[in-house]
Write a protein that binds this DNA or RNA. Structure first.
Lengths: 336, 336
DNA sequence: TTTCGTAGTCGAAACGTTTCGTATATTGCA
DNA sequence: TGCAATATACGAAACGTTTCGACTACGAAA
């Protein structure tokens, strides 16, 4: 492949001059600019990112770590990040942590090997212990997406998760449900914990108790949520409504209801947190607390690039987005 | 950050010896190995991918270009590729072409700048003209996924698209439909063309004509497919069944039917090509010709790594996977 | 006319590795 | 005991850039 040296020879100028043209880093006469550009075209020169980043110490690579790229929710995040990066002359690099701290660590190492200039991280845990583990694995500007991690001093872009849980519960309470359960995710993960907290608070404020057996642990996975929901639905008395902590959880709950021959919403109301692109074509069409995924993704990458480009490196207040209830057909008044 | 130099100093050996330990590229005594490893642990050394790839001329980066990472179908592909790469010590880099040749070209340039060691490409067009344009943009081992491109000498991993179209049509014919239309994608794109070809052949073999007004162009996009399908469904006589060329197209068709107040499958049967993970929770549950996405993705990355690692660089016969019909509730006999 | 500042260009060093030829120590064998 | 062969370790060059100090012209100010 042609190198900057070939371009320089072809244009009859010094290597450093070509570099100056390429980076607009020093004044160059129009004549030379033209010759260099002609030489670039003629040689088919493509800059060598590795050489560039080795010498300059800056990589123009952005790492994105999501729980699972195959989950449409996170795929959407990846798409937004990709778009912003491409426009800004950065290259993004997406990897899945699989919600597993060990794999997360492996992925972070890879990101370090690649010397990414910045990181957007959806963490696998949010407790202080995990924060302590993460802190010496991360040595670049980072924005946390979806939740805070205790002990990590990075900017956070998230939605108001407690509000989401509250909204879901209040909707069901408003419909007259008294026996409301929830399928949560992984304890120690703020998205799950906060949503559960809001849920519990809403129940308490309305004088409702939540039986322990009505809380199931679904691990953000469809099949696990399905199993957990079935267990909850075997409880006596059986809850008449269930809140699902995430999109995959919602699918699991819906399948569990079907497994048990329960009609939604007649026998069981379900409200999910996080919306589905295909909601209109689902059966039932899920009532959902939706979160502005794209806006959040965009906010996080834009904030990150600001920091990386030194436009505004000072840590800022967390960006917190408001969730919104979307009522569809998976909820109704409880059976008489 | 610690460099190999720091490790060498700490271990009291030469830089080249550390390198030999790191890469097992020369015999080193056990004593030295131990000292080097201790030094690595102590200094927290992380290799510098850019320096490594600059010097060695090999990057251990794999590029993946898909139409749209936000489409769950392609997100699944990305996930498989990611997994295989991680296990093999490679790093993958996913980008979306947006089905737009200009953006595809931009993405390919980026991949060249990054000096990827190999490429998995789902092309935006498959005609000879596009092949000619691509050939001088690609200078690394490449595997084409989903379809061939005329004039490109690369290995191909795809499904039997004509068979998919045939399967879809034959299912509808078997149910007794006489008026069958199809919403296709972009002409000049083999996935679409071949599926349409199989579809047309099946009709012809069964003595059925396909009115031109029953073919709509949906561009692999939900909204465009919706519009195209509505137009087709305004035709007189209106088709009693529609085949949709892709997953997004199927969604568009289903929405179009709903827009026009047509019940599926009572008033209109629909069979899609490519399955949905959430099929069980859809209304109607789509009858579909499914394609082994994950297996294809895995086959393509494994083949690519074989080539890149020089294990087997000779071009091989295309890998062609067989599609399968999955009958659900979006198809039935035509209205009397 | 001299001096100074500035636009334009150049050359060489440096970034962190790998690679390869060379040097040294150790072993096996005559 | 001596010598070839082998096993280890080393040093320096090179990969393709960016960066920075130095040099040359030339026009403006004194």
């Amino acid at each position: 492949m042609a190198t900057i040296k070939d371009v320089a020879r072809q244009a009859g100028v010094a290597i450093s001059t070509v570099s100056a043209v390429l980076n607009r880093s020093a004044p160059v006469s129009q004549d030379v600019i033209d010759r260099v550009q002609a030489a670039i075209a003629k040689t088919g020169y493509t800059p060598h990112a590795a050489a560039r980043s080795l010498r300059s110490g800056r990589s123009r690579l952005i790492g994105l770590v999501v729980p699972n790229i195959a989950n449409p929710h996170f795929a959407m995040v990846a798409r937004e990040v990709e778009n912003v990066c491409l426009r800004a002359g950065y290259t993004s690099m997406v990897y899945s942590s699989g919600q597993d701290p060990r794999r997360e660590s492996q992925v972070l190492t890879m990101m370090r090997v690649q010397r990414v200039a910045g990181l957007i991280l959806i963490p696998t845990r949010s407790d202080a212990g995990h924060g302590a583990a993460l802190i010496d694995q991360i040595n670049v500007p980072t924005v946390l997406l979806d939740m805070q991690v205790e002990g990590l001093p990075f900017d956070v872009v998230k939605s108001d998760n407690a509000a989401a849980g509250r909204l879901a519960a209040e909707h069901l309470i408003g419909l007259g449900h008294k026996h409301i359960g929830m399928i949560v995710g992984i304890p120690g993960l703020a998205t799950s914990d906060d949503r559960q907290l809001g849920f519990t608070q809403a129940l308490a404020q309305n004088g409702l108790a939540c039986d322990r057996s009505w809380i199931g642990r679904g691990e953000f996975d469809m099949e696990q949520a399905r199993t957990a929901a079935k267990k909850v639905l075997y409880a006596a008395p059986r809850p008449t409504a269930l809140v699902a902590v995430s999109n995959m959880t919602t699918l699991g709950v819906l399948l569990a209801a079907r497994d048990l021959g329960l009609a939604v919403p007649r026998d069981l109301s379900v409200v999910g947190i996080d919306d589905f692109e295909m909601a209109a074509l689902m059966d039932p069409q899920p009532t959902v607390v939706s979160t502005p995924v794209r806006e959040m993704a965009r906010a996080s990458i834009e904030r990150l690039l600001d920091i990386v480009d030194k436009k505004n490196a000072a840590p800022q207040a967390n960006r917190i987005f408001e969730p919104a209830l979307i009522v569809r057909s998976s909820t109704s008044r409880p059976p008489a």
